[in-house]
Design a protein around this nucleic acid. Structure first.
Length: 606
RNA sequence: GCCCCUGUAGCUCAAUGGAUAGAGCGCCAGCCUUCUAAGCUGUCGGUUGUGGGUUCGAAUCCCGCCAGGGGCGCCA
């Protein structure tokens, strides 16, 4: 925002140092921590330290010498347009901007750009974010939700930051787990089908639990029980073989039940406003991945141990020439010729690189699969894909329950849909208590926005590499550092604007200047707003939704304080009233932009 | 055995080499005839697991140790 002024000052500092034989170290500018006003600062510690190391400076302590330089430089700079004053403190030089200029620039820019405020310039680079990879024939649980919201927000961030972004889902639609459900369905429930997308999807999970009970070896089982269990297992294996061979009946059964799961998944994604660009299915890459195995053997990357009754493996460390074990060795084809997760991931990566021309490939996957993905990336490198360098595993800690890990086998899972329903129920209860002014018809829709806002934020406000113990009361809390807190700031801003009869009535907010004495609340609000574009870039570059989550809260917090302390509509001076209205409008816009990046709705009333 | 992650206020978490380590929850005390109290203001609360090292400066980087979690050739 003040790049020109900063550059001018930097130039003067450099000139002064050259003239006075001071070996200036690189200048790093950063905002001044606390201020009733705002500005930017840089320090001279590094320069002083360099001098001390070179034996200059007569053994003056570094902080003292840094302060000396800061004072000398300060005297030299003189006055700069747009800058109110410059001070030398504790080895830092603080440049304070002229309040009115700064405020005006920030607010005007937001109001000119609106929904595009904070959008980065195009980076001419294509990013694919792969997330939402639940298995079919299960049901979408709260762990899948964490994955999906993280991936979606990351995609929104990279897109807004200037990357060409592709969203990709990769459901696991085949495997022993899938066959297990099909077997149970075919044997015990053939022809049945519950009403309702979610009921039907969740029913498949129940079948899985039931089937697992029947197929699991139990302590002290009688020979008859054991025989029965083994017979069941044989049926299941037979079904898998039939699927593999393309048996018409089994394939049809698979397609039908698979579609039930995918319908449920699509509906969940729709509920949380996620629109996928590309759908990859595990079953689609099964065949292509087999030819990849042959290619890797030919290229002497993979070793074929099948002649000795083994599998096809890749000795990754050895092929990379590493002496210490890092990636180890892994199997890419079973001895029976069937593929593995790793095999399919290689085929998928090839398609991403060749068909979709992605420059960066981000995998939002549980941190427990870290070694596995590192192995995949290493093999891609051996294979000759330069993009392997830009494959990135965004790992996240797993979501467990207060009573322990979630376990689909034991039926101990918290389903997303149940949390969603509970969230709406709780918000509606609060609404009936506090929001008497909202028409009955609108309440349901707002309850969805608030409930999902609480849930999304509870996931996003924790660093992705930390595990989460899912607690319904915490996840659906509406007080304090939560989604609804941020949404409420948006609502309050809207409330002022609505009452001012500015928005909606006239297209333009009244003109205003900020050359009156601003309160510290206004100053802080403006500063936070001005930081938004940087927060977008940082969050996207570091692949960290948390950065944006933290930013959104801080902005809302600043707005709430402003709202409480500074009258807007009651301002007697017309210029001040207009200036504050412009500030409120800008605040509302930036809060909305931040919430949008977090996949959280910004309601006008709540 | 090897590798990865985590350890910060009573609890849940921020702070990725800079100024006095910050929020929320909880506790306590204030604030609604005044733009929505899902809010605001204030109080209390810290040897950043531990011992060294690097640096002008370390929660942050390096090494050791302790504690918890996860992973390691035919599951995904």
């Amino acid at each position: 925002m003040f790049e020109k002024e900063q550059q001018l000052i930097e130039g003067k500092i450099k000139a002064y140092c050259v003239a006075n034989d001071i070996a200036l170290a690189e200048l790093k500018w950063q905002p001044i921590p606390f201020s009733g006003e705002w500005g930017t600062s840089t320090s001279f510690f590094q320069t002083a330290a360099n001098e001390a190391r070179a034996g200059k400076g007569d053994k003056v302590p570094v902080p003292q010498r840094a302060q000396e330089i800061a004072e000398q430089v300060r005297a030299e700079i003189g006055s700069v347009g747009g800058v109110s004053h410059i001070e030398a403190v504790k080895g830092y030089i603080n440049v304070y901007y002229k309040t009115s200029d700064y405020a005006q620039r920030v607010v005007d820019e937001v109001l000119a750009s609106r929904t595009d405020f904070g959008r980065g310039d195009s980076k001419n680079e294509r990013v694919m974010v792969e997330y939402a990879q639940p298995n079919t024939h299960h049901s979408f649980h709260i762990g899948h939700y964490r994955n999906t919201i993280l991936g979606e927000v990351l995609a929104r961030l990279t897109e807004f930051a200037g990357f060409d972004t592709i969203r990709a889902s990769y459901p696991g639609d085949i495997g022993l787990g899938v066959i297990t459900v099909m077997w149970a369905y075919d044997k015990f429930y053939r022809g049945q089908e519950p009403e309702g997308i979610h009921e039907r999807g969740q029913w498949l999970l129940k079948l899985y639990v039931e089937a697992t009970q029947l197929l699991e070896k139990k302590d002290g089982e009688t020979p008859e029980q054991a025989a029965k269990r083994e017979a069941h297992d044989a049926e299941r294996r037979e079904m898998y073989q039939k699927w593999d061979a393309g048996d018409e009946y089994v394939r049809e059964l698979w397609k039908t039940t698979r579609e039930w799961s995918l319908e449920e998944l699509r509906d969940v994604l729709d509920m949380i406003d996620v629109k996928m660009d590309v759908w990859f299915y595990e079953s689609d890459v099964d065949e292509p991945s087999k030819s990849i195995v042959e290619e890797l053997i030919e290229k002497n990357i993979a070793d074929d141990e099948r002649p000795e009754g083994g599998a096809v493996i890749v000795k990754i460390d050895e092929k990379l020439g590493l002496t210490k074990e890092k990636y180890r060795t892994n199997v890419i084809l079973r001895r029976d010729g069937t593929t593995l997760y790793l095999t399919k991931d290689l085929a998928l990566a090839k398609e991403k690189f060749e068909k979709y021309q992605v420059d960066r490939s981000i995998y939002v996957v549980d941190v427990r699969q870290s070694l596995h993905l590192q192995q995949a990336f290493a093999i891609l490198k051996l294979w000759g894909f330069p993009q392997a360098e830009k494959c990135y595993h965004l790992g996240y800690g797993f979501v467990s329950l207060p009573e322990g890990a979630m376990s689909a086998r034991r039926g101990r899972v918290v389903l997303f849909k149940n949390v969603y329903d509970e969230a709406i129920k709780r918000v509606l209860a609060v609404e009936s208590e506090r929001s008497g002014n909202i028409p009955e018809a609108e309440r349901e829709s707002i309850a969805k926005q608030i409930g999902l806002g609480a849930l999304a934020y509870s996931m996003l406000a924790v660093d992705n590499n930390k595990d989460i113990v899912f607690d319904m009361n915490e996840a659906l809390s509406f007080d304090g550092r939560t989604g609804p807190y941020i949404q409420n700031a948006h609502v309050r801003a809207n409330s002022i604007l609505k009452k001012s009869q500015v928005e909606g009535q006239t297209p333009e907010l009244g003109p205003a200047t900020f050359d009156f004495e601003l309160t510290k609340h206004e100053v802080e609000l403006i500063e936070h707003i001005s930081r938004f574009p940087n927060a977008v870039q940082q969050a996207a570059n570091e692949y960290r939704p948390l950065v944006m989550a933290a930013y959104a809260y801080d902005l809302a917090n600043t707005f709430h304080s402003f709202y409480h302390a500074v009258p807007v509509l009651q301002s007697e001076d017309e210029n001040i009233r207009n200036a504050r209205l412009r500030l409120v409008s800008a605040s509302k816009q930036v809060i909305a932009n931040a919430l949008r990046l977090l996949d959280i709705q910004a309601p006008d009333v709540m």
